[in-house]
Write a protein that binds this DNA or RNA. Sequence first.
DNA 1: GCGTTACTAGCACGACTGTGCTAGATACTG
DNA 2: CAGTATCTAGCACAGTCGTGCTAGTAACGC
Lengths: 201, 201
Amino acid sequence: MVDPVERRRHLAEAVWRVVRREGLERASVREVAREAGVSMGSLRHYFDDQSELLTFAMRMVIERVEHRVAVLQVPDDPRLAAGRVLAELLPLDPERRAENEVWLAFTARALVDPQLRALRDEAYDLLRNACRRWVRVLLPTGTTEPGVDLETERLFALLDGLAVHAAMRPEQSSAEGLLAVLHHHLDQITASPRPAPEGLL
Amino acid sequence: MVDPVERRRHLAEAVWRVVRREGLERASVREVAREAGVSMGSLRHYFDDQSELLTFAMRMVIERVEHRVAVLQVPDDPRLAAGRVLAELLPLDPERRAENEVWLAFTARALVDPQLRALRDEAYDLLRNACRRWVRVLLPTGTTEPGVDLETERLFALLDGLAVHAAMRPEQSSAEGLLAVLHHHLDQITASPRPAPEGLL
DNA sequence: GCGTTACTAGCACGACTGTGCTAGATACTG
DNA sequence: CAGTATCTAGCACAGTCGTGCTAGTAACGC
C-alpha cells in the first residue's frame, strides 16, 4: 500500500515528537505507536525492536541535515560560502530547532549507549571535518597545522555551544543573534574582511 | 550517628555514579540505593521522593562548581584572572569531568522537566553573567553594549561547546587542548579593537 | 476462485518502576 | 531503666516497560 520507507520515516517522526514533548526516556514502543496512531504490533512490523526504532530516528536527523547542506547553493567567495554552510548548522528556523532538540536528546543518551554513540561519533567527525575545511580556507595561507587545529576546535565548539544554548533558552536565542555571533567569529578568523553582505538569512 | 547533610551528599554521589555509568534514566530509587549500599526505605528517609533526590544531586553540581570558583586565588591582572576563573569551568581533571558529565545529563532532562529546568536556568544565568563580566573587563574600554553582548554570547557558547565535546570525546579532548582554545580566544578578545557590528541579541 | 505475502491489532509474560506502608533496630533523653 | 525520636529494612501495590506470540485483515499474483 504505502511505501515502507515512507512509513518508517512517518514512525520516526512520531519518535521526534515524543522526544521533544516528553523526552527520550518516554519514547517507549507503546507511546510512539500511540503518537503515530498505530498499534504496537504494526510498529513492530517496521522495526524489530526499540533499539532499531531509535537508531533510525537518530540517523534521520543526520540525513536531514546532510541533505540540506548538500542541496545548498554556495557562493564562490569563500567567506560567504562558509557563512552560508555553517549557518545551515544553526537552529535558525522551527525545522532546524526540532532537529537540534532531538539531536541533543540522542547525543545525551549516546553518553551511555554504545549503539547511539557510534552514530554520534560518525556525525561529529563529519562536522569537525567540515569546520576544518572552512577554517583552512579562511585562515591566512601559511598558517601552521596546530593553528588550524586550534581554530577548528574553536569553531566547532562555538557552533555546538550556540546550538545547545538555542535548545535550552529559545526565548533568549534569536536567529539574528545566532547569525551575528557566527559571522562575527568568521570575520575574526578571516584574513581579509568580508565582501559586501548578501541578503538572505 | 552520621551528619544527615553528609548522608544526603553521600547518596547524591551515588546518583552521580549511576548517572555516569548508566544514564539518568537508570537512576531509579532502587538502583541508587543499591549503589549507595543502603535499602530503599533508608534512602527515602533522607529524600521524600525521587524528584527530591535528583534535584538535590543536580544542585550539588552547581554548588561544587561555585565553591571551587569562590575559593580561587585570582591574579590582579585582568587577562590572567579571566583565564584562571574561566579555566575552572572546563573539565580539566577527573573531578571536573565527572561534574561535567553529570551536568550534561541533567540539562538534557531539563529540556522536558520543569523542575530541573528552573535549576538549570538559575545556573546558566550565573554563567552568562560571569562571561559578561570578564568580557567587559577584557574588551577595549568604550566598546558598545551590543558589542559586549555579542562577545558574551560567543564566549559563553564556546565554553559550553568545549565542555560538551570534552564529555562526548574525552580521548580527543586533552586539558592542554581545552586550555589552548580558551586562552587563544581570550587573547583575541583582548587584542581586538572591536567596532560594534549591527548585532542585536 | 485460491494462495501467499504484507500488514495490523492486541494479548500475555516477566521485569522494572515509584511510593505507601509497617516493623524492627539503633541512639539519645529523661 | 524506660521512652522517644531517628534510622534502616523491605514488602505490596499499581503502573509501565519490551517483546514473543497468535490471529485477523487487506493486497496481490495466478
